[in-house]
Write a protein that binds this DNA or RNA. Structure first.
Lengths: 110, 110
DNA sequence: TTATCATATGAACATTTAATCATATGTTCA
DNA sequence: TGAACATATGATTAAATGTTCATATGATAA
């Protein structure tokens, strides 16, 4: 863990272990990807932005469920939000997100 | 993607949505990365294989806790196992795993 | 064989988490 | 203004999950 002990440089690792706090953040990030509903939402909006209700329709799930999960995605900066009239459109935040998913897919499909 | 023009866009997907089963597997994979103990274990063994007890010592956690989590990593093919006498040595399965973590780190640290 | 060490595992418990229901907030338009 | 619509949110409930304790399994050496 975050050993900042100057005397202990016996560490022959190439990768330095990040601070504990970073590791917690990292786990929290992956936690967001670790739910099938959120994964499906991310796929659904990966090409086009979509309104909440159309995501719900598309996945055959309740609007409330989708909204709750979109909040999680929002809080973790994984989606972009745009309001247009009564509707709110969501899209993936950046290609970063897609790449993480692709990496996971590679592992799952291999 | 990220079409900001709301007028009559044709929904032309570039990415096909994988089967539901694959999406579940994908979520399950990320679920494994979504725990700080497992993340820390993965960092700990990312450079050198290590025995269960030395991982536990290194993280200041119970042998049982580490063993339980190593099982999860094993079941998801994220670690390699090698027995040598009484000890069992664990290492990361492949660079794939590292790359997934690196991707996540990029997002967390940005 | 038996004692000892290293690891794995089952059960119990506490905590987290996702889905649902009901309702609140915010927007548009008559 | 008020009705209708789209989305967000709080509370509740059920299920999943991580840690701990106690113990089982498996390996080594005397």
């Amino acid at each position: 863990m975050n050993i900042t002990n100057p005397t202990a440089d016996i560490n022959k690792s190439n990768h330095e272990m990040p601070d504990l706090e970073v590791l917690f953040d990292l786990a929290d990030l992956f936690k967001v990807f670790g739910d099938s509903t959120r994964i499906r939402i991310m796929f659904t909006i990966s090409d086009n932005e979509m309104s909440v209700q159309s995501i719900a329709d598309s996945l055959n799930m309740e609007q409330s469920t989708i909204s709750h999960q979109l909040r999680v995605l929002r809080q973790n900066k994984l989606v972009r939000v745009r309001r247009e009239g009564k509707q709110i459109y969501y899209s993936l935040d950046d290609d970063h997100v897609k790449r993480i998913i692709e990496m996971g897919l590679d592992h799952v499909l291999e």
